[in-house]
């Protein structure tokens, strides 16, 4: 996830901002699994927030026209 490790093809010398606050793990594998763990924690939290009965809830969200 570390922005600096990916050099973009354009010939730009501007430093790329570090967009992600967490320090990057050393290897790509460790990095990927840490990222997955982070997402799984997030999903666990969101599971508890999501409306129950997704199908029914989504179907009932019907809007009148707007601009």
């Amino acid at each position: 996830m570390a922005a600096q490790e990916q050099q973009q093809p354009q010939s730009r010398d501007t430093e790329i901002e570090d967009e992600v606050p967490e320090a990057p793990p050393a290897t790509p594998d460790a990095q990927a699994s840490a990222a997955t763990q982070g997402v799984d924690d997030l999903l666990d939290e969101i599971d508890g927030v999501l409306e129950s009965n997704a199908e029914e809830f989504v179907r009932a969200f019907v809007q009148k026209g707007g601009q």
Binding site: E5, Q6, Q8, P9, Q10, R12, T14, I16, E19
Partner: peptide, 13 residues
């Protein structure tokens, strides 16, 4: 510039 650069190189970032 920084967002365009990331979109071209490492979009998840």
């Amino acid at each position: 510039e920084s967002v365009l650069t990331l979109l071209g190189s490492n979009p998840p970032a």
